[in-house]
Design a protein around this nucleic acid. Structure first.
Length: 606
DNA sequence: CCCCCCCC
């Protein structure tokens, strides 16, 4: 008895080519254990008589053929159905794996009993060692029409009975098969963004795709970004195929999919003009507002609520980018009788109208933490819907108009501008600020302290800055009457003085150096930066201006961030605001409360 | 291959 293997088939398949019904011999198998959500899988070592490779994965529905012993070593099989797929690999490369979907056993291993030919490993072959694999999901049919027929000629798809074009549910997409086509609606599309870092630079845009089975995020880089950006339109439906799938990073998306897609050179995107009413437009996974309080900072959430109040648009300067930002805070409430502050940015902040108390649905909002409270901030990738036509929105409307509007809701956001109060004060002594590990997280912490100015350094406290309103960059004196701003890249005949003070603050618990910028510095010195600058030529008067500020006792709003210089951690403190300590009655009441708290004494002691 | 998303 002789057994004819399909010599050379494996190298063709591994190179992305197709071989019909190849005959191979099994020379080994390895179990890849599944987890609670995925089945065990088997990886097979197969030989075509010339080459051997272990890039073949057995579809899980065939697992019993291994466990029963039918696919023992030396068994000769015909692979009657398979697909191959590129899989992102740990060492950055991509490898092709083969998923064997159906087989015919031609000869049992026990009959064959030996290795056929002298197969050698294919160099550069895939080692499909990836865990968490999913089994391919059977395709479902879409009846052909003019547009999908066109798609069928452009897109390689698995054929199905009746010759219709097969599309696959988004939920079935995985790195283990690449012969799929999805019919999906774009729910959101990001602007083109460029990046530059140590690993290189480029541009990209991303989009979220939905069908009735689920959602997935897709990203197009560089050439693909240029190629597809204009074509992709929000709310439109496309037939998409041939993308790379990789594990989704849940830090950046709230979509319920294990993977995300990357467009490649091969990616096909075909607009679908037919009636696509079967494809949903948007899905949410709302969390009750009262539950948001339990989430960690930066968590992504879907939330819905009635806009009970909205604040004005605020303009502020980003500390990181120095860019002007527009912000609006609104408060939304839901049936948990809880409210949360929602922060809108940019044009969304400017255009928002909360006067009719609309229902707001947010997808992929981000939890922010400030002063012990939680708020939800909208990101580039977030979606905000006003009065969406969904059940949850209608229920909320009914609840709010009948009950919610007349009740007070507990806010999990602390007192914010939109909630109609000042900011949380979180009083601390200077020593507490140092001991409470303030500013050790990514973001700075804010606290308020009553402290006395011990010393104001006059050295390097004043600088000549760019005269432009928004630019405060230090200028270079050209010594010819002109001042050069490196940031604006031009020279000016004038400049403005700016203050940057180092201040030693003290209270009974300790002391702390703090940096005091322009506005706070002017308030502290009781002089404008220009007035201080005018004294610069007069040593005595100049010094006197700083000495006068010593021993003032004020309420300081402070920003604290831990920074390390040469392996040494130091709390960097910046003065955000200074208020004079005029209301002693209030100050004393606060101190008395603190004393009571410290002593554990109840209200009886009054 | 991005992953920044701002402020008190």
């Amino acid at each position: 008895m002789t057994y004819k293997l399909s010599e050379g088939a494996l190298s063709v398949i591994l190179a992305g080519g197709n071989v019909d019904d190849p005959v191979v011999q099994i020379l080994g198998h390895k179990k890849i254990a599944g987890n609670s959500t995925t089945a065990d899988r088997f990886r097979l070592l197969v030989s075509d008589g010339r080459h051997l490779n272990s890039f073949a994965m057995l579809a899980t529905q065939l697992n019993d053929k291994v466990t029963s012993g039918e696919l023992c070593d030396y068994t000769v099989i015909q692979i009657t159905r398979y697909i191959t797929s590129m899989v992102a690999n740990a060492d950055k490369g991509e490898k092709r794996v083969m998923v064997i979907l159906d087989i015919k056993i031609l000869a049992l291993g026990t009959e064959v009993g030996f290795k056929l030919g002298n197969p050698r490993p294919i160099t550069g072959g895939a080692e499909a060692e990836t865990a968490g694999s999913r089994q391919p999901v059977p395709s479902r049919s879409v009846q052909p029409n003019s547009s999908t027929n066109r798609a069928a000629t452009n897109v390689t798809v698995m054929s199905s009975p009746g010759g219709s074009v097969s599309t696959h549910p988004i939920s079935s997409l995985s790195p283990y098969q690449n012969k799929w086509v999805i019919k999906a609606r774009v729910t959101t599309k990001s602007p083109v963004r460029t990046w530059a870092n140590a690993r290189g630079e480029g541009k990209l845009f991303s989009m979220d795709l939905i069908d009735e089975s689920g959602e997935i995020r897709a990203t197009a880089f560089k050439e693909q970004c240029d190629k597809f950006y204009d074509m992709i339109e929000v709310n439109k439906v496309y037939l998409i195929s041939r993308c790379l799938l990789k594990t989704a990073n849940k830090k950046f998306t709230n979509l319920k999919h294990d993977y995300e897609m990357t467009f490649t050179n091969d990616t096909q995107v075909i607009p679908c003009h037919e009636d696509s009413g079967d494809i949903p437009t948007m899905t949410f996974d709302f969390m009750s507002i009262s539950m948001l309080a339990n989430l960690e900072s930066n968590a992504l959430v879907d939330v819905i609520g009635v806009c009970k109040s909205s604040g004005e648009v605020q303009t502020l300067i980003s500390r990181n980018t120095n860019r002007e930002l527009k912000k609006r805070e609104v408060v939304i409430v839901d049936q948990s009788n809880t409210g949360v502050t929602l922060t809108l940015w940019g044009s969304q902040a400017e255009e928002f109208d909360g006067s009719l108390q609309p229902v707001l649905a947010v997808k992929n909002g981000r939890i922010n933490e400030f002063g012990g409270g939680k708020s939800v901030s909208l990101l580039q990738t977030s979606v905000l819907q006003v009065n969406p036509d969904i059940t949850e929105a209608h229920k909320l409307r009914g609840w709010f108009d009948n009950i919610g509007s007349t009740q007070e809701q507990e806010s999990i956001s602390g007192r914010t501008a939109a909630a109609g109060g000042g900011f949380p004060t979180n009083w601390m002594t200077l020593k507490e600020a140092q001991e409470n590990q303030l500013g050790c997280a990514d973001k700075p912490d804010y606290f308020t302290a009553v402290a006395t100015v011990l010393l104001v350094r006059s050295e390097n406290s004043l600088y000549k800055a760019c005269p432009t309103a928004e630019c405060n960059k230090k200028v270079i004196d050209q010594n010819n009457g002109m001042y050069r701003c490196e940031k604006c890249n031009r020279e000016y005949p004038n400049f403005k003085y700016r203050l940057l003070l180092s201040v030693s603050l003290g209270d009974f618990s300790g002391n702390q150096w703090a940096t005091c910028f322009q506005e706070a510095a002017e308030a502290l010195l009781g002089m404008s930066a220009q007035e201080v600058g005018d004294l610069f030529h007069d040593d005595k008067q100049f010094q006197e201006a700083f000495n006068r500020a010593a021993f003032k006792t004020c309420i300081f709003r402070l920003r604290a961030k831990m920074e390390s210089y040469n392996d040494e951690n130091r709390l960097k403190v910046t003065v955000v605001d200074i208020k004079s300590l005029t209301n002693m009655q209030e100050h004393n009441a606060r101190l008395i409360t603190e004393i009571k708290d410290m002593a554990g004494v109840g209200n009886s002691l009054v």
